Simulated scan of single mutants.
Amino acid sequence: MERAAKQDAINELNGVFKSSAVVVVAHYSGLTVAQMSTLRQQMRAVGAKVKVAKNRLAKIALKDTDVASLESLLKGPTVLAYSGDPVAAPKVAIDFAKANEQFVILGGAMGKTALDPNGVKSLASLPSLDELRAKIVGLVQAPATKIAQLANAPAAKVARVVSAYASKDAAA
Results as ranks from 00 to 15, higher is better:
Ser72Phe: 02
Ala58Phe: 02
Leu129Tyr: 12
Ala58Trp: 00
Ser20Met: 12
Ala93Val: 07
Ala4Asp: 03
Arg40Cys: 06
Leu39Pro: 00
Lys91Thr: 08
Val120Ser: 09
Glu131His: 06
Asn100Glu: 09
Gly76Val: 09
Gly119Met: 10
Phe103Gly: 03
Leu31Gly: 05
Gln102Glu: 13
Arg40Met: 08
Ala9Ser: 14
Lys18Gln: 15
Ala53Gln: 04
Gln7His: 10
Phe96Ser: 08
Gln141Tyr: 09
Met36Arg: 12
Asp8Ser: 13
Gly84Cys: 04
Ala34Ile: 11
Lys91His: 05
Val52Ser: 11
Gln141His: 10
Val52Asp: 02
Gly76Phe: 08
Asn118Ser: 15
Leu73Tyr: 12
Ala34Gln: 15
Lys98Met: 05
Lys59Arg: 13
Ala53Pro: 02
Ala61Glu: 02
Ala93Arg: 07
Ala89Cys: 11
Val87Trp: 00
Ala134Pro: 02
Gly138His: 09
Ala45Cys: 09
Lys75Cys: 01
Ser122Cys: 02
Met110Glu: 11
Leu123Gln: 13
Gly30Gln: 14
Leu126Glu: 01
Pro77Gln: 15
Gly108Asn: 07
Val79Asn: 04
Val52Leu: 14
Ser122Leu: 12
Thr32Leu: 06
Gln35Leu: 06
Val24Tyr: 06
Leu62Gln: 03
Phe17Ala: 02
Tyr82Asn: 10
Arg44Asp: 13
Ile10Phe: 01
Val24Glu: 00
Ala114Cys: 13
Gln35Cys: 08
Lys98Asp: 10
Val22Trp: 05
Ala26Trp: 02
Thr38Trp: 01
Val50Gly: 08
Lys18Phe: 10
Met43Phe: 10
Tyr28Thr: 02
Arg40Tyr: 00
Asp8His: 10
Leu62His: 05
Lys63His: 12
Leu74Ile: 08
Ala93Tyr: 07
Gly111Tyr: 05
Ala142Met: 09
Gln35Met: 11
Val16Trp: 09
Val23Thr: 11
Leu70Pro: 00
Ser20Leu: 11
Phe17Gly: 10
Ile10Lys: 10
Lys75Asn: 14
Ser20Cys: 14
Ala81Glu: 03
Pro90Ala: 08
Gly47Leu: 05
Val79Ala: 15
Val25Thr: 07
Val104Ser: 07
Leu115Gly: 00
Val79Glu: 01
Arg44Asn: 15
Ala93Trp: 04
Ile136Leu: 15
Gln102Gly: 00
Ser69His: 05
Asp116Ile: 14
